[in-house]
Design a protein around this nucleic acid. Structure first.
Lengths: 217, 217
DNA sequence: TCCGTGACTTACATGATTGTAAGTAGGGCG
DNA sequence: CGCCCTACTTACAATCATGTAAGTCACGGA
């Protein structure tokens, strides 16, 4: 095969650098993005990295931006993919979302960013997606509730929020927490918990709300 | 006040160093523990830190050990304090635990350690405490269930696990998540969510379990 | 009182990490 | 073909962080 291109493809190296840096970000946090390491992993010299990103800060910014973007994409895709099936299957939805958070290391990344003071969730598309889920879910509840007492919108939103917090919590603290709680920390056990949670929330969503004890203060 | 003691108190400086280092650990993670910074904050030279802890690693170890210990203490105290009241008040318990996790920055610390690969929850006392809560809760459920179908022990344990995950999740991701979900991210709103959660779980704990649909695969 | 020890200090060595300077090589284009 | 731009490279400078060496000083006990 003809002349070896010693100039593989423009942009290739840049992407590879981003990739390598993101891996480090996910696994060990922003502090672990070191020019030399990243460069070595990609097979270039460290000034090559500076050439593409100007400074370490620039690299970190670019990585975070990209990571947040793909996280949001993946999450949105997972949610959309599950929702458009029409039938709501809580457990399946949970599995998809958990997969996204857990498998790709998105949850770890989210946690690193959150702890570092970033706000990776501040994004209109994400908010809109969330609102959409809440509306669809609530409409479904209200439709099923005919005659009986209708659930409050807040209740629906809280339910979704709880799912998110629990899934996120499990993705980053699952292993340790399961062990501390005396469960064997196996993937199967964790999945079982998610199924249990899905069932709990599904039941809650269909049940008639209790009259809330009026709280004064 | 006679001769000024230029030798304030043995151990004082050591504690102050630990304190300063722990603050950094909570706020910005293990990587942010730098000898010079910590020393400067306490008002000593950085070799003084080395003198007490041998190496940076030694300092980090000591800090983590102490932090994990106080975290476990605080948590155990909070749980014990609530439980020994006899009456189970889920909401109050949640507030206490959340306080411990959130106010002292324990949740952040936990998260940093978890992300860094430590397992701050691996502790017999903590496991025992957890098991105790599960047993007490379950006994209460079973007592109330006379005649009706009895809940499974796993269900009780999952319920407690869910509380822990949600509380932890809220402590580190609460602000961002509430905002993303379209709630105003106020402390009051977050408290309301906890009350809602406590009510949800309390209701679940008193309800008769549904027959589980047998799953084949 | 004298000595040892613990709690430091200043000065320095070392290695890691980021950043700069200057030069090279390939590819597209007028 | 010659030029310029991009994508690098090697060599070097600067800074920072950890760790070491050696000395000082107060206190407490023999």
């Amino acid at each position: 095969m003809g002349a070896r291109r010693s100039r593989p493809e423009p942009g290739r190296a840049r992407d590879a650098i981003l990739e390598a840096a993101e891996k480090r970000l996910r696994e060990a946090g922003p502090g672990a993005i070191r020019l030399q390491d990243v460069a070595a992993e990609v097979g270039v010299s460290h000034p090559a990295v500076l050439h593409h990103f100007g400074s370490r800060e620039g690299l970190v910014r670019a990585v975070v931006e990209r990571a947040v973007h793909t996280l949001q994409q993946d999450l949105a895709r997972a949610l959309a993919g599950q929702l458009e099936k029409g039938r709501a299957d809580g457990a399946a939805l949970f599995e998809r979302v958990f997969r996204v958070l857990s498998d790709e290391g998105h949850a770890r990344l989210l946690a690193w960013l959150l702890l570092s003071g970033e706000d990776p969730l501040a994004n209109d598309a994400l908010r809109a997606g969330w609102a959409g889920i809440a509306e669809v879910t609530h409409a479904m509840r209200v439709a099923k509730a005919k005659g009986r007492r209708k659930p409050s919108y807040e209740d629906t939103r809280f339910t979704i929020l709880l799912s998110a917090l629990a899934l996120f919590g499990q993705a980053i603290a699952g292993r340790a927490t399961f062990a501390a709680a005396g469960f064997e920390p196996t993937a199967d056990m964790e999945r079982r918990f998610r199924e249990w949670l899905a069932a709990l929330l599904a039941r809650h969503l269909e049940e008639e709300p209790r009259p809330s004890r009026a709280r004064q203060a």
